[in-house]
Design a protein around this nucleic acid. Structure first.
Length: 286
DNA sequence: CATATGTCCTGAGAGC
DNA sequence: TGCTCTCAGGACATAT
């Protein structure tokens, strides 16, 4: 479940790859159904080998690696994918390896960036290379809303103010805001004491502002903690280390516990749009 | 048009 | 113990 904070953490951890050159690109022998890699591996290799990484970025919940050819490699972890520079959690689910030539330079933590790996247990993710026009078409403002770290009250109100959907469901809409996923949607709404089932078109102007403020606050704090590693331990940063924001979760995964805010209610778990939502019925109001 | 639902995939954990 | 079943929620396709 890498969401914005987890993907941003991955991005920051691979920043040391900037300046390195691609020496090899190989699909890893994985006995399972192969993940989506495009273009096909020989074409991908032809377009990447010898190219220099000139930057890293993020498109919502995707890691973007920029090359001197102006091509962009988009790594999309979806549920269980990881972008790594260190050894992966298991060899079994390694999907793609990009060998890097760092020219003897030393990067973050004294680790030479010698490889960029894509690992994915469930294999719902993908690795795709885009030319600039293709990238713009796939991830432009038509497809992806403003980034979660750039959200403002007026922007949220403009995008969602007339929607009849429940606010928690709407916050997961990547065309409205890019990067918020199931964990942080519940967390954000608990901060502002708004019921996740409240309809967007019944949310006041000042509450949109409060939601925007809470979004920034929660996302920045989660990035500071390098994301949330849940009980299954799947999410790791690019050095294969756990995040710590799960320890600060107010409601997510805490059904039955006392509300950390009002100490008056018990955290409830409900299902909205086929996904679990966690909230405090006592202090989050419709 | 807006919104809702089904689909992909694997492994952990529940329940018998 | 060992099996079967359900669930986890990313994005997108299809349905309403």
């Amino acid at each position: 479940m890498p969401e914005l904070p987890e993907v941003e953490t991955m991005r920051r951890t691979i920043a040391g790859c900037v300046g390195t050159q691609v020496a090899a690109v190989e699909r890893c022998p994985c006995p399972r159904k192969p993940i989506l890699v495009s273009p096909r591996i020989d074409h991908l290799r032809r377009r990447l080998v010898g190219r220099t990484i000139v930057g890293t970025g993020r498109a919502g919940k995707r890691v973007v690696v920029q090359f001197d050819s102006d091509d962009k490699l988009v790594l999309e972890p979806r549920m269980t994918g990881l972008v790594l520079v260190a050894d992966p959690p298991s060899a079994e689910h390694l999907r793609l390896r990009i060998g890097l030539d760092s020219g003897g330079r030393v990067v973050r933590d004294g680790t030479a960036a010698s490889q960029l790996l894509y690992w994915d247990r469930r294999g719902l993710g993908s690795v795709r290379l885009f030319r600039p026009d293709e990238f713009a078409a796939a991830f432009g403002p038509e497809k992806l809303g403003p980034d979660g770290l750039d959200v403002t009250g007026p922007l949220l109100r403009e995008k969602l103010g007339k929607s009849r959907r429940a606010i928690k469901v709407a916050l997961l809409d990547q065309r409205a805001v890019a990067g918020i996923g199931n964990i942080y949607a519940s967390e954000i709404l608990h901060v502002v004491h708004i019921d996740p089932r409240k309809r967007c078109d019944r949310i006041s102007k000042t509450d949109w502002q409060r939601i925007a403020d809470a979004t920034l606050e929660v996302l920045h704090e989660a990035i500071r903690c390098e994301g949330s590693t849940l009980g299954d331990g799947t999410y790791r940063n690019a050095l294969n280390q756990e995040g710590t924001y799960q320890n600060l979760h107010r409601v997510y995964g805490r059904a039955g516990e006392v509300c950390p805010s009002c100490s008056d209610g018990e955290i409830r778990q409900v299902v909205q749009a086929q996904r679990s939502t966690f909230f405090c019925p006592a202090c989050q109001r419709r």
